[in-house]
Simulated scan of single mutants.
Amino acid sequence: MGEYGTGPGEQAIRTTVALDGDGTDIARARHLAAEFLIGARDEHGLRVSRRGVDLTQLVVSELVTNARKHAPGPVLMALRIDGDTVEVTVWDSDPVLPEARAADPGRVGRHGLEIVRAVAQHFEARAEPVGKRVTARIALTEDPSSGAVPRGRTR
């Protein structure tokens, strides 16, 4: 489930999946993200906290939901571990870049981008020749002394 070797002496762990819009995309993407992180921990000895897995699944859920809601056609999701973070990238065919709305505690729903920006260390949305690419970077652990997710468990 990974691809290796991005730089001298560095190992990149990454995966990409096409989501076709069959109604199970969001749950499937969340599950794949958890499997990816647990696999990185188990196979490569990386520190991955329960919080890191949970936040990654939250970000994946929000980004894939937005892509499915606003763009026709397939969605691509890529996950890449870079040092002590996981980079979540979602591509869709809609060229309109997402914009965070002003905070409004009375608004029901439509808080996904606010949530992603609040939990991510980095957020970026870029126009592509076709559609857009939205990327968020999430910490794998809260700090070096945080507890890792026990083997075989994601929650």
Rank of each mutant, 00 (worst) to 15 (best):
R68Q: 13
V108E: 10
D25N: 07
L76H: 12
K69L: 05
G52A: 00
L140C: 08
T15W: 00
A118G: 15
V59Y: 01
L76W: 02
V116P: 08
V119N: 09
V116F: 05
R80E: 14
W91K: 11
V59I: 12
T141L: 04
E99M: 06
A33D: 03
K132D: 04
A125C: 03
G5I: 07
A148L: 05
A34W: 01
R68S: 12
R153K: 03
V130L: 14
Q121G: 15
V119D: 13
E35F: 04
R153W: 08
M77N: 02
L55A: 06
I13R: 07
A40F: 02
G7Y: 05
A100F: 00
L140D: 11
G2I: 04
R117A: 05
I115G: 03
E35K: 00
G73H: 12
L37D: 04
A103F: 11
R155T: 07
R117M: 15
R47D: 15
P74A: 13
A12R: 14
V96F: 03
A120F: 02
S49L: 05
S93C: 06
R117W: 04
E87C: 09
R110P: 05
T85P: 00
E87N: 11
F123M: 10
E128I: 01
R117S: 10
E124A: 10
A139R: 13
E62Q: 13
D25S: 06
G52E: 00
E99P: 06
V116D: 03
D20S: 11
Q57N: 08
V86T: 11
R107Y: 09
T56H: 08
H31Y: 00
L140P: 06
R107K: 14
A71M: 09
L63Q: 11
L37M: 06
D92G: 02
R153A: 02
R137V: 04
A18E: 11
I26S: 01
E128M: 15
N66T: 10
K69S: 04
N66W: 00
L63W: 03
V88S: 09
P95R: 14
R110W: 12
P95K: 14
A40E: 08
V108A: 15
G45Y: 03
D94P: 07
H111C: 11
E99G: 04
G131E: 14
